[in-house]
Design a protein around this nucleic acid. Structure first.
Lengths: 201, 201
DNA sequence: ACCTGAACACCGTTCAAGT
DNA sequence: ACCTGAACACCGTTCAAGT
């Protein structure tokens, strides 16, 4: 496959995304600057504007990437399971595990002030990730492991729990010493919590 | 009480804190700038350095204020209740209600990159708020409404749930149309969830 | 004590220009 | 098509100076 290589990069867009993630990992999404991203990608400070309308659009692209990876991680974690309840359990664990593995993406996805209206791909990817969780709830309902009815309330409760665990863990608010300990805690929390979903109405 | 009024303000520190919160409410903690805060307080761009070492210390002061108000809100909500389980329930509701009432404080408290080591007051205030939750768990244990043992695991699970609800609500990820609806959802989630705390081990 | 203006090294974004 | 340097209006922070 022949590589068209205009100027510096075969694919500057990807190079910029990579550089952005590495920079966010180093200085956080607050200290993140477009000019430093360009520097790290080896281009001038306004080359990024050929690929992203502004700083927000680059952040939105990072968020979109994150939501797509999160969805895949949830699906993959559920795949190997046989019961609907186990699929739900494992997808919740995968949510927390994703946040620990990609804290920069996770932070951008939920804390960066990204306009959903101005970034439809970002919005769509976020909704798809949530739809994945809803589908696991519906599976449980069809198999009679959760009471029938609107799957939205129990989905929101389940989301809240794993999101809270993920957020607090990433923010360093937990007294656990390793990611493995966080995941063990998450598993226990999810287990104890599945019966409660039945009462979410 | 006689007001010493040096130069522009009787209390520039308070004026700066107020201006900071109003500015964060308007542009978010990302768009927040020290120079604009000074402008809003009617002083020159570096007058703030007389009261705060740098931008981070001003943010830390906002966070500290938030944690103290959160602790008070939890205590006040619990006060009127007679059973330990109701006190726990109401303090959880108060947590979510605080986040909805003071979203700027809540965001700064948990998402701003504030060094705990460099800001001991901030760290202390955060720990005290958490200690308040732990004390409600212990009360339930003493009254036999929760199984005895280390109160930390159930406290962390309870915290995760209300924190997740608060975060997602403030981030606008919920399909609810009013704060009242969010609070109703939070109440139901907490109720369904109290039995699960027993299994947190 | 508390405040100021000038200065420095940065930003995000725009624009005219280069290949 | 993709990239560049200069320019503009901003930052956070420092410093010498004023009352």
């Amino acid at each position: 496959m022949p590589e068209d290589r205009p100027y510096h990069h075969g694919n500057l867009r990807e190079a910029l995304l990579d550089a952005a993630i590495r920079l966010i990992a180093k200085v956080g999404p607050a200290g993140f600057t477009l000019r430093e991203v360009a520097r790290r990608a080896g281009v001038s400070h306004n080359a990024p504007y050929r690929h992203f309308r502004d700083k927000d659009e680059l952040l939105a692209a990072v968020g979109t990437q994150g939501f797509r990876e999160l969805k895949q991680a949830m699906l993959r974690a559920a795949e190997s399971q046989t019961t609907s309840l186990d699929r739900l359990r494992r997808s919740g664990r995968a949510y927390v595990s994703f946040a620990l593995r990609r804290p920069e993406h996770f932070t951008v996805m939920f804390d960066a002030p990204i306009s959903k209206a101005a970034n439809p791909e970002y919005n769509e990817a976020g909704q798809q990730a949530f739809a994945t969780l809803v589908s696991f709830i519906e599976m449980c309902q069809r198999e009679g492991r959760l009471p029938p009815g609107d799957p939205l309330p129990p989905a929101l409760v389940a989301w809240s729990l794993v999101h809270g665990i993920a957020k607090l863990a990433v923010a360093g608010r937990f007294p656990f010493r390793s990611k493995a300990d966080v995941l063990k805690f998450a598993e226990r929390a999810i287990d104890g919590f599945l019966p409660a979903l039945a009462h979410a109405e």
